[in-house]
């Protein structure tokens, strides 16, 4: 009976917290995926159950505080009650029943949301956590990119989770719960973005200095847009006609030890693939927008954007940076 107003209050509270956040929210109460919506519904149910327990328990406590507060005029001790079998049995058995029900509900949802099973017709992606950026590979499509994961709207995506170094955790709250990326282990999760949009997330397992700036963007697009994105990503950098002379500079520096550019150099792999760098909205796993200024700043000193990032400050001269900028900006 107390449950409906309670749910209403919760509904209101959660919605106002979403409103506070605006369109960039990461609220677990604002899911857009069949992997996240059932969890939201589960929340509402559990909120209801624990809300009732909360109200009853705190109610009894507050009642006894008010009702049984000493008035100061007591002449003798109150009656001593040592216990009561029926009452004690009641508050053993009732919680057992509640807890058992919750257990059944939980078990059912664990099996129905099984994260390790691929949904039918799913797009397969491999997400690898690196200190402190994300690599996304579409092995079937021959694409490697970083920081931003493009997916088609309304089609399930099955993500293989890997780590290149320490433990990370892939979490985009509006699409699915989090699952860890653990070295020497293969984990999975799935989601399906039911709307076109950008969904934010970030690494959720502490992984060292820049754990806070290991951000994720999932960009869901209409299938045609996704397909044209795929077509562009599949191009090799060499096929782009206007090639600036910064390429020589790039190849002559240590950049190639860490970065690959398909069709140009593929001995790296420690850092993000740069083949289509300019097709990304952000650099350094979402730490900064991909603007000319930021890119320049990044080359001058990565620490100024992301302190401790594993790309060294290479002490480049302005001339080298000009050349590199010219070249990088052709990597559409």
């Amino acid at each position: 009976m107390g449950r409906i107003p309670l749910l209403l209050i919760l509904f209101f509270a959660t919605n106002s917290s979403i409103a506070l956040a605006g369109p960039e929210n990461l609220s677990i109460f604002d899911p857009v995926s069949p992997a996240a919506t059932p969890i939201r519904d589960l929340f509402m149910l559990v909120f209801g159950v624990i809300g009732i327990i909360f109200v009853i328990t705190e109610g009894a406590l507050i009642w006894s505080i008010i009702r049984y507060r000493a008035k100061g005029d007591e002449t003798k001790e109150p009656p001593q009650v040592y216990g009561s079998n029926p009452i004690e049995v009641a508050w053993t058995v009732i919680p057992i029943i509640i807890v058992f029900t919750l257990f059944l509900v939980t078990t059912r949802s664990i099996y129905s949301l099984d994260m390790q099973e691929a949904p039918e017709g799913a797009l397969k992606v491999k997400a690898t956590g690196h200190q402190w950026w994300w690599e996304f590979e579409y092995e079937d499509l021959g694409i490697t990119t970083a920081g931003e994961l493009h997916v088609p709207e309304g089609i399930p995506v099955f993500v293989e989770l890997r780590s290149a170094d320490v433990i990370h955790s892939f979490w985009v709250p509006r699409l699915a719960g989090k699952i860890d990326c653990i070295p020497n282990r293969e984990n999975h999760l799935w989601f399906q973005a039911d709307e076109v949009g950008t969904w934010y997330g970030q690494c959720a397992e502490f992984c060292g200095s820049q754990h806070a700036k290991m951000l994720i963007r999932v960009i869901s697009e209409k299938e045609v847009d996704f397909n044209s994105w795929v077509a562009n990503q599949q191009l090799q950098a060499a096929e782009i006609p206007t090639e600036a002379n910064g390429k020589e500079t790039f190849l002559s520096l240590a950049c190639i030890n860490c970065h690959n550019i398909q069709g140009v150099t593929t001995v790296g792999g420690f850092g993000p693939d740069l083949t289509h760098l300019m097709s990304r909205d952000t650099i350094a796993s979402g730490a900064a927008n991909n603007s000319t200024d930021n890119l320049r700043l990044w080359l001058q000193n990565p620490d100024s954007i992301k302190e401790g990032a594993l790309m060294p400050n290479m002490m480049l001269s302005d001339k080298e940076i000009d050349a590199l900028m010219e070249y990088l900006q052709t990597l559409k």
Binding site: I39, F43, I53, S109, I110, S169, G177, K178, A204, E205
Partner: peptide, 17 residues
């Protein structure tokens, strides 16, 4: 009670860490 919420595994997938 928040502990109980965390014990509901799918909710913990959202709430853990």
């Amino acid at each position: 009670l928040t502990g109980i919420m965390l014990a509901v595994v799918p909710m913990d997938w959202q709430l853990s860490d």
